[in-house]
Amino acid sequence: MNLTLKIWRQPGPDEKGQFVNYPVSDVSPDSSFLEMMDVLNEQLVEKGDEPVAFDHDCREGICGMCSMYINGRPHGPDDAITTCQLHMRKFKDGETITIEPWRAKPFPVIKDLIVDRSSFDEIIQAGGFVSVDTGGVPDANAIPIPKIDADLAMDAAACIGCGACVAACKNASAMLFVSAKVSQFALLPQGKVEAKRRVQKMVAKMDELGFGNCTNTYACEAECPKEIKVTNIARMNREFFAAKVCAPSE
């Protein structure tokens, strides 16, 4: 396959970026998208140019590090995958592929296609945990949990924190990410203990960081590589109002 890559190049966080076109030839349809990027970078290095900086690590769709916005879709033209799982057979020979970084105020560009997603860590630090210390916990089977609740919690917990939901959302909203964590814990007895406190703190942090608001467009769900459902957002809404209306003030 021969392709033209239109890639966003930006030397640093405060510098202006622009699109640069790169032709690539003889790409195997069986290679992954990132392997195609590797080939491009090898060529750039050989020429003495600076390779395109992009985040990636596990290359099996679970670490959540890869983050390319390809032809208008986070993680590119396939469903339920990350960029590293995208294969070139999804493109047509001769195609021009536009590659951009995630764009959102809370995800500033570091370089080229690398963005800073530490805002997600901050949201988790605001309350995305169960406050138990190591040791002194009850036996794992002490509290039976209905299978359906455990399954739904697992559905929500499958989030890899890649930020595709924010990237896909026309409002750069982080609701799907935040609600996935809120839901996971709200569904489990272990997490229920501090559920009211958690949801308020996480939502407040999300707002503070400058993510947009949810308009229930559901692009997040459509683009989520782990198919996290927007029912989690509704659950978070419920949890939040219940907490605001019913919980005693601290």
């Binding site: 239109k6 966003w8 699109f19 916005y69 032809n71 208008g72 879709r73 986070p74 536009t98 951009e100 764009r103 959102a104 105020k105 809370p106 990237a167 896909a168 026309k170 409002n171 750069a172 909203s173 400058g210 993510f211 947009g212 608001n213 308009t215 467009t217 559901y218 692009a219 769900e221 459509a222 683009e223």
Partner: peptide, 18 residues
């Protein structure tokens, strides 16, 4: 607020929405 959350727009705007 939603506009402010994405000060730099995408070149190719997202089309995915249900």
């Amino acid at each position: 607020q939603n506009w402010m959350a994405r000060p730099n727009r995408y070149k190719v705007e997202g089309w995915s929405h249900t």
